[in-house]
Simulated assay, not measured.
Amino acid sequence: MIIKEEIYIEPFDLLRVLHIYIPDDIQVGERFPVMYMYDGHNLFLDEDATYGKSWGIKDFLDAVGGRVIIVGLECNHQGNMRLCEFSPYSFKDEEFGSVKGLGKITTNWIVDVLKPYIDENYPTLPEREFTGIGGSSMGGLMAVYGVALRSDIFSKGACVSPFYDHVFERLVHDISKTQLNPDTKVYISWGRKEFGDSKSLALGTEKNLLISRILTEKGANVFPHLFIEGEHNEQSWEKEVPIFFSELNVTTQL
């Protein structure tokens, strides 16, 4: 089932919708791993998705009997605030202008406020072993940042088509300096059709492999994937759902 509820984000002084998946047939005393994911409105139902197509995670989990809670945080739809809240670093972009990086605040709020709230109100397995972070595009960037910088909380990250423009060098610097829990699992993906030409594809691949190498050298178990037919949209990301759920061992049953 999908539960929608509002939660107050104090540092932004805003209410935000949570899109929460929980199994329909919860047994007495049963508790579940939790995956926190960005752009919650795009995860489960086509009618909620920005472009009319979701990742189909609900249908997938219902079909395979996955035992997991997914907490999807809806983005801020006002102006370029999604970029601000989902970027750890400030930057300037020709199309979107100045972006104030509030992603560190968002990450800390998830760790310090949202996770305790979910653990108190839902039947979770709260330990790090059962806690993950995930997202695509800007959410993929935030998943890379979150699993690397807060591996004390997140043991796994699904980093789908992460957005690196304008921020890559600062991200590499911070990841290189952080201390990573060595049992961390990280899935990183990118699609060939996300890039306009072979040079852009090579540069994008190099960036993802550099992140993969840094995390691997710190002891993480990294799963890098280049999808030959992959595009930057929900239709493509839906095809990855079974892969990262399996490789990251997200649920207690598949």
Rank of each mutant, 00 (worst) to 15 (best):
I57D: 05
V172I: 15
V64F: 03
G40K: 01
F154H: 03
D174W: 06
I110T: 12
I20K: 11
T184K: 05
M81I: 11
P23V: 00
Q253F: 10
P23W: 04
L73N: 05
I20Y: 09
S200Q: 13
N80R: 12
L125D: 03
I22N: 03
F244Y: 14
C75W: 15
Y164C: 13
E247A: 13
P126W: 03
V71D: 05
Y38V: 03
E94D: 07
L83C: 11
T178V: 03
G134D: 04
T106N: 05
D119H: 03
L201D: 05
S161A: 11
A143P: 08
K199H: 15
S189D: 02
I9M: 05
S151C: 06
D119W: 00
Y164V: 09
S151W: 00
V250S: 02
I110F: 13
L83P: 04
K207Y: 04
P116R: 12
S136N: 06
K104M: 10
R82S: 09
W109M: 13
S54N: 07
E238Y: 07
I3C: 14
T131A: 02
M35F: 11
Q235A: 00
G40F: 01
V34W: 04
V111E: 06
Y8L: 04
T252E: 15
P162N: 07
K58R: 15
